[in-house]
Write a protein that binds this DNA or RNA. Structure first.
Length: 695
DNA sequence: CAATAGAGCGCT
DNA sequence: AAAGCGCTCTATTG
């Protein structure tokens, strides 16, 4: 087969050719490493194939594929044809150690761009062979695609004119009309014949290359040069953090698992006792029956108010609601506090959530291959997904380390406290305070928020002072709390009802608050209108299609077609999934939602830019520092939107703090804003457990 | 048995 | 009619 590399001599010749290029794409096919179920775990898996493509050349290197080709295609039994998988012996292949030794000059050449689709996975995967992560420039076709169209895979305008997802196969199908993997070979390569996997791996690299070439050109044409640079360096950060992982106290975790399972048995019994029957308390449906069913049937006969999402839709259609249309979530049950079943269910739910999602989610459940342990050598390696959101923030998965319970409740504190610095180390925890408001104030460039930040006043206190017309010193706690809600309402676009609900006040009272806020901060509302007009002016779905968008502080785009609602309405026949005449109010809410998304994305997305920049800077500082302090390295271990956690040798805490401060608020970051970041060394917490950082 | 939808809930 | 996420569980559907 053309491009199949079986010997060192062949590979050296290829490397010579690739070294003369300015870029190449590559991909790995992996199997389980020494531990079971680790094919998809980049720190633990094993590379079996590596493919590469560049101008005029595509190659594929096997290194331990277990099968040859199929000897027998078909066999007949009594009355049907069967396909026994009988394989020939595979050809002799190189060992990974030999392959990677020869590839080293290529993957560590700073003048050659290395391209992969979801590069973090492949980069961490090969780290175990190179003993370090391949150096940049590392580019990722999935990231470029996302910068060009973050809405791929989302329902909405143009769904059918876009790829169905960000995956390599979906993009190849869409852009080249080629479907080269109908059998999903990559899901389990060891089940397939040698030649089939060879072809598959080769095409992965080839189409990654072809897609990247296309995206690369389009990024220039769409003014995405700067943000692309940021994202390419972010890839290196994701690799470094994914590789090091976050340290957890495994022993405490095991103990907590036992403690909670005992607790749950009791709480479960409490529910049954109060309800007088046995049912599945994890099932919303069964909870609806028990709580809202008639007393005559031995149920509680509670009269619910809050509907589920589905229930509301049904009500819109003017259908008669049933008990199954009413919510059983925490908020819906609040009015019934005191009912023994409700109270027992509430107590159970909190513990059950934490046990299943966090404790068992990390430890895994013995004998259940769907719930593997996420802990390797006392560390959890999350996958920080740089392309995981519509706004530019990170998402985090397998497991998600961005939704660890905050230390508000005792139990939440315990769970967050499982993240613990290793012996001899401390966690240093830094976050940006009120960063979204700072960004907003900076963009407006004047007004109450802007003045407050320049005067060094806490933003919520400043808001309260202006809304309630009292001096900064006279702001009461309840006023600051209300102001905080108002500030959230601005950033998220909440209306009077939501503000009322959050603060536990009437809608009329909320109206007064919002009116006062508008009076005190007219520039915010004017700015909002301005942004909306700008976004709208960039869009058109008549004639040449241009989706409205906003640009963040670093030039990231968020496209929101919904803000062209009135145009869409006129063009309704082109948009088959809604009928504006029948759903006028629904369409209006689509527009309103689009406007909230536009405004929120401007701020949330800019914060995403800034935290990524800070992490790139920190990574640079720490990489350099590591060379000077072998064995005493500092590592970034967690990142939660506006918060950064590092693990730092105990005797280097002061250095670590300085590094964090410089990375997060140094000139390069501060210069993006015209309000002060106001970060200080003192605001960086030095703790053993993550839960001790916030009170 | 596997995939999917909905409800619900953890976080910033 | 509050932005952005991912995970677990149940119930339904293929």
């Amino acid at each position: 087969m053309e491009g199949l590399i079986l010997t060192a001599e062949q590979l050296r010749t290829e490397v010579e050719y690739f070294l003369k290029q300015d870029a190449f794409s590559w991909d790995t096919e992996t199997m389980d490493g020494p531990l079971p179920d680790t094919r998809g775990v980049p720190t633990q898996n094993r590379v079996v194939w590596l493919s590469m493509a560049t101008h005029g050349r595509t190659i594929v290197i096997p290194m331990g594929h277990p099968n040859g080709d199929v000897l027998l295609q078909k066999a007949h039994t009594k009355n049907k044809i069967v396909y026994p998988l009988v394989y020939d012996a595979p050809p002799e292949q190189m060992r990974p150690s030999q392959v990677f030794a020869i590839l080293e000059p290529l993957f560590f050449n700073p003048d050659i761009t290395k391209i992969a689709h979801n590069a973090t996975f492949d980069l961490i995967t090969v780290e175990k062979y190179f003993d370090r992560i391949p150096i940049g420039p590392n580019s990722d076709s999935i990231v470029l695609q996302w910068l060009l169209d973050e809405n791929v895979g989302e329902l909405g305008w143009g769904f059918n004119q876009r790829p169905k997802g960000k995956g390599l196969k979906e993009l190849t199908r869409f852009y080249f009309g080629v479907d080269y993997d109908k059998e999903e070979v990559g899901r389990c390569i060891e089940k397939h014949a040698f030649s089939k996997v060879a072809r598959y791996a080769l095409l992965d690299a080839k189409y990654t290359w072809l897609l990247w070439k296309q995206f690369d050109g389009r990024c220039l044409g769409e003014d995405l040069w700067a943000i692309r640079e940021l994202e390419e360096q972010t890839t290196d950060v994701c690799c470094q953090m994914g590789l090091i992982g976050a340290p957890v106290d495994v022993q405490a975790l095991r103990e907590l698992e036992k403690e909670l399972s005992l607790k749950l048995e009791i709480l479960e019994a409490d529910v049954y006792k109060a309800a007088g029957k046995i049912f599945n308390m994890n099932s919303p449906k069964q909870k609806q029956e028990v709580l809202f069913g008639p007393k005559s049937d031995g149920c509680q006969g509670l009269v619910p108010v809050k509907m589920t999402k589905g229930g509301k839709l049904k009500a819109q259609r003017k259908a008669e609601p049933t008990i199954y249309d009413y919510s059983t979530d925490q908020e819906a049950l609040e009015p019934f506090e005191g009912n023994q079943v409700v109270d027992a269910l509430t107590a159970y739910a909190e513990v059950a959530k934490l046990q299943s999602t966090y404790v068992q989610g990390y430890l895994g459940v013995d004998g259940d291959p769907k719930k593997p342990s996420r802990i390797f050598n006392g560390r959890i390696h999350t996958d920080l997904v740089q392309y995981g959101t519509l706004t530019g923030r990170f998402s985090s998965r397998t497991p998600n380390l961005q939704n660890i319970p905050a230390p508000r409740s005792e139990l939440g504190k315990k769970v967050r406290g499982l993240f613990r610095a290793p012996k001899g180390y401390k966690f240093l925890v830094a976050d940006y305070a009120q960063m979204e408001l700072r960004i907003l104030a900076s963009m407006i460039g004047f007004g109450g928020l802007y003045d407050g930040f320049h005067a060094g006043v806490d933003a919520h206190t400043q808001t309260a002072s202006l809304v309630y017309s009292v001096t900064i010193e006279d702001v009461k706690k309840w006023q600051r709390d209300a102001a905080k809600t108002l500030n959230f309402a601005i950033v998220y676009g909440a209306q009077n009802k939501k503000v009322a609900q959050t603060l536990g006040i009437t809608v009329e009272e909320a109206d007064v608050l919002l009116a006062n806020h508008r009076k005190a901060f007219p520039e915010i509302y004017a700015f909002r209108d301005q942004i909306m007009e700008l976004a709208r002016s960039r869009g058109s779905i008549t004639g040449r299609v241009r989706i409205p968008y906003i640009s963040t502080i670093m030039g990231r785009k968020r496209r929101v077609w919904e803000v062209l609602y009135d145009v869409a309405q006129r063009e309704a026949p082109r948009l088959p999934w809604y009928n504006p005449r029948r759903h006028a109010s629904a369409v209006r809410s689509v527009l309103a939602r689009g406007e909230r998304q536009v405004f929120n994305s401007l701020v949330q997305g800019s914060l995403g830019d800034i935290i990524k920049l800070a992490m790139i800077r920190m990574n640079r500082i720490l990489s350099e520092d590591a060379l000077k302090n072998p064995g005493r390295e500092i590592y970034m271990v967690l990142s939660v939107h506006d918060e950064l956690v590092i693990q730092c040798p105990e005797d280097r805490v002061e250095e670590g703090k300085k590094f964090l401060l410089e990375a997060m608020s140094g000139a390069e970051v501060q210069d993006l804003l015209n309000v002060p970041l106001a970060m200080t060394l003192d605001s960086i917490a030095v703790v053993d457990r993550w839960s001790d950082a916030k009170e």
